[in-house]
Write a protein that binds this DNA or RNA. Sequence first.
DNA 1: TATAAACTGTGAAGTTGTTGTCGGGTCAAC
DNA 2: GTTGACCCGACAACAACTTCACAGTTTATA
Lengths: 197, 197
Amino acid sequence: MAAVAAAGFTGSRMPTYTISQLARTFGLSRSALLHYDRIGLLRASQRTMAGYRIYSQKDRDRLAQICLYRDAGLSLADVRHLLAAQERPDVKILEKRLRAIGEQILNLRNQQRILTAMLTKMASGPYEPVIDKTLWVKMLAAAGMDEAAMARWHAEFEQLAPAAHYALLRQLGIPEREARQIQAWARRAPAPSSKER
Amino acid sequence: MAAVAAAGFTGSRMPTYTISQLARTFGLSRSALLHYDRIGLLRASQRTMAGYRIYSQKDRDRLAQICLYRDAGLSLADVRHLLAAQERPDVKILEKRLRAIGEQILNLRNQQRILTAMLTKMASGPYEPVIDKTLWVKMLAAAGMDEAAMARWHAEFEQLAPAAHYALLRQLGIPEREARQIQAWARRAPAPSSKER
DNA sequence: TATAAACTGTGAAGTTGTTGTCGGGTCAAC
DNA sequence: GTTGACCCGACAACAACTTCACAGTTTATA
């Protein structure tokens, strides 16, 4: 009774899959599928005599759906609900998730601000210059700040505390001349309206 | 031996705090502080004879630091390291966090896309119009989409599939005339350069 | 002064979505 | 008959808490 599980064929019937095959094709781990089975989200529709799971084409499709919803960041509980009420999938769940994402992004943006403030303070602090220009720019870029965001940041900083801004620029190893240029450019830059988000 | 804990006074000495007082002032739960105590991140420097925790001013300051770092989204392990090496706080940790935030935001944006795609499909699907214009806009707004983002979205959709775009607009209850206007405007709108993020 | 309400303590277990490890069974090939 | 590649179920671990159960302490009220 081996042929069933191994190659995925039962004569000319629909293909079947072992647990690890399915895991690989969806970029999941075997344990994840075991977990889905345990919580009843996705059970293999058959077993071999030895107890090996056999996933059918239908199971595969279901898993595809699950992955789709998971990629949207939905919890397994929500995924279960969505799959349960197939006819008219619950808009409210998706909406709720969308709202949550918005909140999370705002939250992360705030964290970015806190961190850049910390790093700014450290860079212009009494310590040895731990940070130089390239590192600084790389960090902010890695944080997802684009040109515009950096410009806004410079403008905001310049408006709030020009002296500290200058000090920071010098700390980053930028020569006097260039630092003054940046300051001037920041003063002319797009006003950092306080309601921007 | 009650006076110590209760009002937070020992004669004219520094103020002290009970666990719940401290929790309230920092917007944490009592259990969180218990947790911090257990893992040794913040232990009360004294106890009453009955075993009640007494937090000193110093403890309070430490907690303030902890909260600051936590607000930046750092893990308790990282917070511990930062507090341990007080003199020259580790820039690398902050940098790493900043990078992680960037990644997370990108990820969430992707999830937004997936969800809006799903909702779009549902709104223009074979079901009854589950969503109308106001709800739609409210949802996207709640997701943190501003005017610009919505414009980009319309432009992208229009470029990709004008017919489907039109269908969706109609589904949302927008009259023919207005729908065509929106389409025209979307075609003129800022090109959705694929490298935008 | 008695008593109830509000607070405190400890320890254990639960939460979420996995990953990893264990010992042991199964299968195909050589 | 023995490798090596699979599979099984069960359990431990992660983060940062929360919740629970149960017992002792303090404070306010009657």
